[in-house]
Write a protein that binds this DNA or RNA. Sequence first.
DNA 1: ACAATGGCTGTTAGCGGTAACATAGGTGAT
DNA 2: ATCACCTATGTTACCGCTAACAGCCATTGT
Lengths: 345, 345
Amino acid sequence: MTKPPVIDHRRTLTLRDVSEASGVSEMTVSRVLRNRGDVSESTRERVLEAARALGYVPNKIAGALASQRVNLVGVVIPSLSNMVFPEVMTGISETLEDTGLQPVVGVTHYSPEREESVIYEMLSWRPSGMIVAGLEHTEAARAMLAQAGIPIVEVMDIDGVAVDSAVGISHYRAGRQMAEAILDAGYRRIAFLGTMMPHDHRARKRLQGFEEVLSRHGLSLADQEFYSGGSALLKGREMTAAVLDRSPDVDFLYYSNDMIGAGGLLHCLDRGIDVPGKVGLAGFNGVELLDGLPRKLATMDACRLEIGRRAAQIIAAKHPDGIIGGEVIELFPTLQPGDTIRPAL
Amino acid sequence: MTKPPVIDHRRTLTLRDVSEASGVSEMTVSRVLRNRGDVSESTRERVLEAARALGYVPNKIAGALASQRVNLVGVVIPSLSNMVFPEVMTGISETLEDTGLQPVVGVTHYSPEREESVIYEMLSWRPSGMIVAGLEHTEAARAMLAQAGIPIVEVMDIDGVAVDSAVGISHYRAGRQMAEAILDAGYRRIAFLGTMMPHDHRARKRLQGFEEVLSRHGLSLADQEFYSGGSALLKGREMTAAVLDRSPDVDFLYYSNDMIGAGGLLHCLDRGIDVPGKVGLAGFNGVELLDGLPRKLATMDACRLEIGRRAAQIIAAKHPDGIIGGEVIELFPTLQPGDTIRPAL
DNA sequence: ACAATGGCTGTTAGCGGTAACATAGGTGAT
DNA sequence: ATCACCTATGTTACCGCTAACAGCCATTGT
């Protein structure tokens, strides 16, 4: 039969090893392993057999350098800990699966400096495209992305100027929409509870749109409370308790995300508060995770899966040749009134 | 002053461009950019200035090929959607941050074939190390890992044979421990509710240990229920409803993870069932996310953060030279009785 | 019979960096 | 002044693979 596998732990195998083991040139081996070009069936089998027996794994570094092609797509996101970015990732992976492209994730922890360095690091691997969360970056990061000569898609948000393409929703508009729904339902003393992170631009834009609608109706926030870190569900409880103690007359609690909103909801139910009669609640994101709570929290779907898909499609489509003009795709979230906001008057 | 930045979108910059712009050899530029070797202060500044002005981003592909060094660590995990692996990732990133190494994530969706291909793909980038969840892999995957000549750490689980190093807990033992606690508390008619995934080996091992203790006490599971997909909280509710309807006399519900356990807890509270008096509940994982529920679910911390940290440390430590013998690190989860299991008799 | 064609395989020249070694000046000791 | 020696820089030879092109042989058409 064939020779037993050569297990040499000192040196890693190269095309040459396979080529020697199968008696053809390195080029032919390369062709077989990539399914590129014509190779006779007998040679192909001999080569594959040798490669398998040796346990050969091609060196993509060398391949990429020689071919000037890298099947990687950089994905830069602020966090994996909340439920929102993993779902975007799912959309991306799903779509990229059929294209031979592979996502590589980098996490910034909402720090612009860290984002800049993650982007630099990724670009130095010469990926085929980059997907970056948000439109706000350091000047250097924007410059790098703009010069990279590859398709760039900024995701989640479209309120701002994109380097190249963008896919997302208008958080500003989402905030307005929610405010209008709340006012329509007759609530008037509205509090905001949210994250303190100074770099969560999307939460900021939602709040901005929200307050604008209030002020157009001659209103302003009755109270606000911020947090950072910790278990969001628990923080939601604590913040809600604080607000309700401090401002017993508020009739609506607007949360910057569903997790703290859920915490707030649980707190209200514990206290026996009439929801949505006496107090209404709303969050943001539409996290499926929370289906199963005693009551369904009003929220707005952020189109996360769809955003991931569309972003990946743009990268995959531009993949072959050069620079096509950047496109901006706006998606429209739908308001899910759930059980925590009473019907409009 | 210096020339204005050359913004050429057709070609990407190389060391040569920087070298020409600053009037020194490519080698010197390389030295400056890597802070390697002696370079005079004046040259260093001139080079850095030129690199910045041009917007040069080094090509790590070429660098890695030439130096035979890649600062990447492959991390292969089944999923990002539940709360467990993101936390392992956090531990890994945190620890790797100080080492110049960078994690690259690949997701397998609990499919052995997908895992094999993700591992192959990653090895072809010649990373400095690999961290892989679980001890069960296809034969080909094990062979590839074993031959790669880099440190391999299998994480989460230690009940089995490791390719090289391993860091984790004994899920088998965790299952036994939970069973003993439940029996000690006097519960006797115990049901199991869990995932159906045939490839969640850790859940399987926990159940196995659990059942073993039951049978040693002359007992067996009073009922069981499985699910797959969907919102875990909601599934937990539904499964719990199903089990309680079908087997009204069960006095304990053992869940394979905290999310479905939380769903079950909410269901029981809704129904006004006396927890933990009439029915006790327990989950697994110790997800902080759920702090804030009306009652604290009994659970066992899976040491996720610590697992990530230790795994990364092993990779970082072996990084410099050759193969040190594989080590197996067992961590010991602590039982958190919470409020859903009554005190021992 | 001979050019044209097409299938299969080999050869050559890089891709963009870096390791290792070579070299040009300066410096201080003898 | 001579030499050893150090610092700052340049030269050369790859790293492992692939694009592009060059050959060779058998087949086909005329």
